[in-house]
Design a protein around this nucleic acid. Structure first.
Lengths: 142, 142
DNA sequence: GCTATAATGTTGACAATGTCAACTATATTT
DNA sequence: AAATATAGTTGACATTGTCAACATTATAGC
């Protein structure tokens, strides 16, 4: 048994923090006339390991048709490109274009800047713990 | 300087983890024919300290007109009630009704259940640290 | 008192997102 | 070859997000 009881309030705090983080990300996307999910999705793409629509579905925990619409928006803005996978012609792989890469970096920078204030109350020691914990959680996707 | 460098990947992991959390909450709301934001908003209400629309705006980091729509949905379903604040007639205070309280508990229970698997990889010590850190972050709202 | 200004909340228009069912095209299995 | 499964799209419809305009009430300054 952990010596710290996990209260309902802990979960509510977790949810509250989610709103805060989401807001940090949206802000920069908004300046560039991107929807919130478009901004988040752009963050989740990288040029090294192009992902299929299906993979993105799993990351975003949302419906396939939903991802179609989000990628449509990013593609119309010239940020991302669908390509056919030669090894399996059902699959479309997603490739981030130069303009997308540039905007992605801006959104990430904003997230980092915005999170500074959010994470400011943590001590160095807590920050180290937090980084380690988040990494552990991120590699465990139920 | 913290001894752990904070990489871009940390922020991406953070975003990924919050997708997961959001999904946990949506799941139960969905079963009861509630939109995702309606479920999240219901979680943020309690019967002790009724909140105004404006307060809720700040918590959710979203537009006032947005909150109007979300509360409309919850009110139509008989989960929540708007009342006039006698001390300031511009203000509507939000009161959770019995049916709302019951559903709120179900959503919270689902969040707790669903998060068990998500938080499982943490050791007792890490869990204690995490609870403390989240609480600290939650009480610091930029 | 009276007027200007600010704060709270709603409405309407429209785009983005979420959910669901039906559908096409391709892979895989039998 | 036929049945089944997978990846992705489309269309219908509800929810959510953004913005501007608006009505109502409070507050500040005169």
């Amino acid at each position: 048994m952990p010596d710290t009881p996990i209260t309902d309030q802990f979960y509510l705090d977790l949810v509250g923090s989610f709103f805060n983080l989401k807001w940090q990300i949206m802000a920069e996307g908004l300046k560039h006339d991107l929807g919130g999910m478009q901004a988040l999705t752009l963050l989740m793409l990288n040029e090294l390991t192009p992902r299929s629509m299906k993979e993105l579905c799993n990351t975003l925990h949302c419906d396939a048709s939903n991802v179609t619409g989000i990628i449509d928006g990013l593609e119309q803005r010239g940020l991302v490109e669908r390509r056919n996978d030669p090894s399996d012609r059902r699959i479309k792989t997603l490739h981030i274009l130069p303009a997308g890469k540039e905007l992605q970096q801006q959104i990430l920078d904003q997230l980092v800047r915005g999170s500074k204030a959010f994470l400011a109350p943590l001590t160095d020691s807590e920050m180290t713990q937090f980084v380690s914990i988040v990494q552990k959680l991120a590699t465990n996707r139920p």
